[in-house]
Write a protein that binds this DNA or RNA. Structure first.
Length: 825
RNA sequence: GCUGGUGUAGCCCAAUUGGCAGAGGCAGCCGACUUAAAAUCGGCAAAGUCUGGGUCCGAAUCCCAGCACCAGCACCA
């Protein structure tokens, strides 16, 4: 037998694919299309196991769909701008561009070595000026429409990355990249008005039935839409104070108000009160509390009475206005009506400061007594102590009270959102320059389209001494105002790299197009993306931005649909030793080592077989040996017979078959059906691999009986089918075996086998017979036996009779193809 | 704290969605090959499904209560 020299085999076919441009595709209206997308990698230097898992899944699907007759687009590129390149420049004196290009070259080599079916002519890198040109072009279109704008706002500053971050990138008060604690700073920054699409982002989820609910849930939480009402509370000696509430039905229970320490009217309320000085001091202290901790509710509730009072516009009661650290600016109006009887936070605050608690919602089953209550009641019930509104359920009370407030001109239904506009400016070099200049005369002026791209200067100094390197390049900063021709200062902020990834999947369609970001005809053919596979960690960053970007492009008239991705499939993480595999934990596995030891086909097969693609994968070096042995056995099997099969005329499978042949054929067709089901809808690639192994076992078992007989056509069919079914998973072995079977290059264009239902059907079945739940006998019946015959045979079985003799048969359940259950008394 | 997911041989995972708990792999044991070892090949053994209740002829699967782990959300008024 010849050795399984995976290294030689894999390289040979990789070269052949490259030379034959096997995976290049163009639009072909005659064939159905399939756009199979994976998340493009950041060129950090190494492909890691998480990438491999992602790309193995998409590669199997891409190859499978191609065999099913689809015109498949399965592209790859590089998310090539971003901080690590610049940090490397500071640390090691390598230019970010060189660092990035070198990393891309190395990682590309790794991807090629894994045999992924990419159309490399479509490769893109976001650091190419020909790519970020279009970031700038989009930015200018958004600037024209007020979607991009500049404003001063409190923003998240990462002291370690020396730049501001978007809200999404500073969750929990930590920088998403380096986990430093972010600081709040008041700065002039560029924003994209994603909030213009906040309703669509939620409502269009109805168009995404093939997205996992947990991702949609996360996005829904992030947008944080909440329906309620705004109500103005009259303030003694001042303008009314506006609050937002989702529980206007409890307004009669509002016994005090609370404003955030930063509320603009705090000073007005405090001025002239009896304890002015002390109050101010207390408020100052509340302001000094850590804002993040306050938001997260990790700080004990504290407050102070401002000295001023307001009137509850429904109960007409005089109620005090407090300042409290649990009320936040930037959500609602920064002021609340406090209903301690029915809101946990208000209850806690009221108990602490001895403020009155009133019950205005009465549950069905018990009576609430404010003096006895240990917690707020926020369940359902009917309104009480609510004047003309008594006796209503919550929904009805809210509707009527809102209508009443509206009629009196003191309130209205209102919707609030948690989502903030997307802060996209970064004070760093290695990003897309924001294409505007500041002119003394004309203010902010966009760079004209014909002057794009604004390219990054090559000679910026990377000292690491604070400040954006771009500011230190006079030839970059000094500009001419496109409008008046006078001197202007060029913007030195660059764009968030999430801008690049928000639309890269459109650029794959026309990667070098100079007239626009993409060819609309190609978009009409290829979009939407049929399958998008990637890490779940992008659920609210990249995937929200991408949805926004498509909607924005739609409003520019560039596309005609609302959503770019039909089916999203988040793959599971890779763990080792029970922990997420990551550089920082030092538990990573290098794909290169695996390839060297076992080959790419083994690595691919292993990573797919060990767990369902959506589950966490627990890495275990020893398990790799298992699939490697499987490939060895396949190799041996083919090695023994390929030459014979290749050398003879292909005769048809005989109609009359021996039991062994019949059984092998059945297994072949059952396997086709199983793997097709597993791959097609459920993406259960792990069980598909198991089915391949089973088929190999079955073929090996029949080898002695069939290989050298006139029934060899059955054996040949089995081997050919095994190769075809295996080829999307282990494509190099697939090609090699296909060739050795005497068939033409390439297996990637062979039609996927079709299961013959008749062939797959069992002739006879063994059924268990249960008596009172215990298996007492077994009967063999023809597969299509009538229920009555099965029943008769089951009851006639001697072992069964032993247990039914002399007893009354109460019931006989026949489950066709499964078992018979007899109940006796 | 809330929501969702998961819990099956020593380990990773299956079980046609209520029908005989086992497809596949790892590890283990036995054997073949080998001077020997590794690699390779063949075979064997192993859990009654996290716990406790319930429904049913029949439950890993459905229901109730709890436990463990994972993920997301969490003063958002």
């Amino acid at each position: 037998m010849t050795d399984y020299r995976f290294d030689d085999i894999e390289r040979r076919w990789q070269e052949r694919w490259a030379a034959g441009r096997t995976f290049e595709v163009t639009e072909d209206p005659a064939r159905p299309k399939y756009y199979c997308l994976e998340m493009l990698p950041y060129p950090s230097g190494d492909i890691h196991v998480g990438h491999v898992r992602n790309y193995c899944i998409t590669d199997v699907i891409a190859r499978y769909k191609r065999m099913r007759g689809f015109n498949v687009l399965h592209p790859i590129g590089w998310d090539a701008l971003g901080l690590p390149a610049e940090n490397a420049a500071i640390k090691r004196g390598v230019h970010p561009e060189k660092w990035t290009r070198d990393n891309i070259a190395g990682m590309k080599r790794q991807l090629l070595r894994l045999g992924f079916s990419y159309p490399w002519s479509r490769e893109i890198a976001s650091c190419d000026p020909e790519y970020y040109h279009w970031n700038q072009w989009f930015f200018l279109r958004m600037l024209e429409r007020g979607i991009a704008y500049r404003k001063k706002a409190p923003v998240n500053w990462c002291p370690s990355c020396q730049t501001v971050l978007a809200n999404e990138q500073a969750e929990g008060g930590e920088c998403w990249r380096c986990h430093s604690k972010v600081e709040e700073r008041e700065m002039d920054q560029w924003f994209l008005r994603i909030t213009a699409y906040q309703d669509e982002l939620v409502d269009d989820m109805a168009q995404l039935p093939q997205w996992p609910e947990r991702v949609l849930q996360q996005q829904r939480n992030w947008v944080g839409r909440s329906h309620g009402a705004e109500v103005d509370f009259p303030v003694e000696g001042g303008e009314p104070l506006r609050i937002f509430t989702t529980r206007i039905d409890t307004i009669f229970g509002a016994t005090f108000m609370v404003v955030a320490p930063e509320h603009p009217r705090v000073e007005e309320f405090v001025r002239g009160s009896s304890d002015e000085g002390k109050t101010r001091e207390a408020i100052q202290r509340l302001r000094g509390q850590d804002r993040r901790a306050r938001q997260a509710g990790q700080v004990e509730k504290e407050g102070v009475f401002t000295g001023r009072s307001a009137t509850n516009p429904f109960s007409r009661e005089r109620i005090p206005i407090w300042v409290g650290n649990f009320v936040l600016t930037g959500y609602g109006t920064g002021a609340i009506m406090a209903v301690p009887g029915h809101d946990e936070r208000d209850f806690e605050f009221a108990r602490k400061y001895g403020l009155p608690i009133r019950v205005v919602i009465q549950p069905k089953d018990r009576a609430l007594d404010p003096a006895e209550m240990e917690a707020a009641y926020d369940g359902p019930g009917r309104t009480v102590n609510s004047g003309a509104f008594d006796g209503l359920d919550g929904g009805e009370a809210s509707r009527r009270m809102t209508a009443d407030a509206e009629k009196r001109g003191i309130g209205r239904g209102a919707v609030t959102y948690r989502l903030k506009d997307w802060l996209i400016s970064r004070q760093r070099y290695w990003g897309t320059p924001i294409p505007v200049v500041y002119c003394e005369k004309d203010g902010i002026v966009g760079v004209p389209d014909d002057q794009l791209p604004v390219e990054l200067p090559k000679d910026a100094p990377f000292t690491g001494e604070g400040g954006n390197p771009l500011e230190k390049v006079p030839t970059f900063v000094q500009a001419v105002c496109p409008r008046c021709g006078g001197p202007a200062r060029r913007e030195t902020d660059t764009m968030d790299t999430f801008v690049d990834s928000s639309w890269y999947f459109y650029r794959y369609l026309s990667p070098h197009r100079a007239e626009g970001p993409f060819d609309p005809t190609a978009v009409r053919y290829w979009f939407p993306i049929d399958l998008y596979v990637g890490g779940i960690e992008h659920a609210i960053l990249h995937l929200v931005y991408s949805r926004f970007w498509t909607k924005m492009m739609r409003d520019l008239g560039l596309v005609t649909f609302d959503e770019p991705v039909t089916r999203l499939f988040p793959q599971g993480m890779v763990h080792k030793g029970g922990e997420v595999m990551s550089k920082s934990r030092g538990n990573t596995v290098a794909p290169d080592d695996m390839i060297k030891a076992y080959g790419a086909d083994t690595l691919r097969l292993y990573i797919l077989s060990v767990a369902p693609p959506e589950d966490a994968l627990e890495w275990n070096d020893q398990n790799v040996a298992g699939v490697h042995r499987f490939l060895h056995r396949v190799w041996g099997l083919l090695d023994r017979h390929a030459a014979t099969i290749a050398g003879e005329t292909r005769s048809p499978v005989p109609a009359e078959l021996s039991p062994v042949a019949r059984s092998l054929r059945r297994k072949v067709h059952q396997t086709i059906r199983r793997i097709t089901d597993d791959v097609e809808e459920r993406l259960k690639l792990n069980t598909a691999v198991s089915a391949l192994i089973e088929l190999e076992h079955a073929i090996a078992d029949a080898e002695g009986a069939l290989a050298e007989t006139k029934e060899r056509p059955v054996f040949r069919e089995a081997l050919e089918t095994l190769v075809l079914l295996l080829s999307p998973f282990a494509p190099h072995v697939g090609e090699e075996m296909w060739e050795r079977l005497g068939r033409r290059f390439s297996v990637v264009d062979r039609p996927w086998p079709v299961a013959d239902a008749g062939m797959a059907r069992e002739d006879e079945l063994e059924l268990a017979v249960q008596v009172n739940g215990k298996v007492r006998g077994r009967i063999t019946v023809p597969a299509q036996a009538a229920e009555d015959d099965v029943r008769r045979k089951a009851l006639g079985d001697p072992k069964v009779e032993e247990h039914t003799r002399g007893k009354e048969i109460v019931k006989v359940v026949v489950v066709p193809g499964r078992l018979v259950s007899v109940v006796v008394r």
